[in-house]
Design a binder for these strands. Sequence first.
DNA 1: GGGAGGTTTCACAAAATCTTCATAGAAGAT
DNA 2: ATCTTCTATGAAGATTTTGTGAAACCTCCC
Lengths: 225, 225
Amino acid sequence: MDNMLKILVVDDESRMRKLLRDFLVKKDFEVLEACDGEQALEVFYENKEIALIILDVMMPKMDGWEVCKEIRKNSKVPIIMLTAKSGEQNELLGFELGVDEYISKPFSPKILTARVDAILRRTNQVDASSIVKEGSIEIDKSAHTCTVNGENVDLSFKEFELLLYFIDNKGIALSREKILNNVWNYDYFGDARTIDTHVKKLRKKLGPAGEAIKTIWGMGYKFEI
Amino acid sequence: MDNMLKILVVDDESRMRKLLRDFLVKKDFEVLEACDGEQALEVFYENKEIALIILDVMMPKMDGWEVCKEIRKNSKVPIIMLTAKSGEQNELLGFELGVDEYISKPFSPKILTARVDAILRRTNQVDASSIVKEGSIEIDKSAHTCTVNGENVDLSFKEFELLLYFIDNKGIALSREKILNNVWNYDYFGDARTIDTHVKKLRKKLGPAGEAIKTIWGMGYKFEI
DNA sequence: GGGAGGTTTCACAAAATCTTCATAGAAGAT
DNA sequence: ATCTTCTATGAAGATTTTGTGAAACCTCCC
């Protein structure tokens, strides 16, 4: 809860704000909103530790450029500009003002979250996507921890790595060979059946959630909710 | 094998190339190499479907920026720049040239693969069409699953492989021998009539859609809608 | 050197699948 | 028509693959 990154979304259209909020919340960010430039500045100064601002260019009263300029007087917080068409980007102006990224509308969820992740990574904030959620299973890559329904689950190193690999490749049938190549060191030449043992332990530790690890007979395993 | 993503690694130091290759190969990428800018362009234009270029900035003859500029004239292929120190990043220049990401040396394997994954995800290249559709039958090769009219159909390993072979060769009459050679291991010397049993099961499981598997009397089978 | 925990191997039980076989049924040939 | 050849099918046996507990093996730490 408390180490969720805060993102301030500034747009005059409530539909757009909702859209952004939905995507970002799904990616485990905390979202603050403002519907115009003045409110944006207010919210920004009232809240500590805002990790990123997503700013629409076209707004009444104070446009995105002005808000950006104002904020840059005091802060280096990363700013992503939302522009309607690529011509509107005016990259030169943006760079002078310290804009970090642009996203032109309409954008895909993928683009949005990718840019956000990239920018947070670049500005060295905690890796944005260090938390992966899949059903009731939640994995924190950086902390190397795992919870199921909020309950902490103790996983060994290999178990954790294996689960992570499964989740990163959810919906894909994985052969034992592939699993070995990716989860074990490349210099491991042992028995592939050791995977079975780890799968067994994982399933047991995950409880009912462990059923997401499916056996594909004659082939390998697959993670699927 | 053939749908592995190709990554072009460009660096004048062979040690660095080997390092990158080793990590990337482990992550199931196909790695191409070039030791300077000119060779990079050559390799890039001679190979179709390079999914990503990792480019060292400091190189003799033609540096990374120039290579990037050259490639951007024709292609939007994602480019990751390898820089020695963060100062060398020169993000403004990079942004104008269309660099997608930076990695500063020295880097950890984790950083490398994380960035590569992120960028491929962003550019939507990850697992291209693994889904084959034929009439009401839909096969997902990567998930190793099959649906008919959206309904999930549970197929065994051999059944799945057999159906895939049929669909890959739709409209073509296949002798039992040919089927054995392609779907069974080359060291299988059993009865060819075992195919009949599998065809029977397939037809049954596929329901009405199973009628697409046609018997060619005295010859073998053919898949045809 | 002695745990403690994690990893790997092994052996056997359990499950699923594959193959074979016998028989019935169809298609083609005479 | 009748015979021959090939295919469909259900059931049983053989085989392969997976699940699992226990034991052996590491490795790190005290």
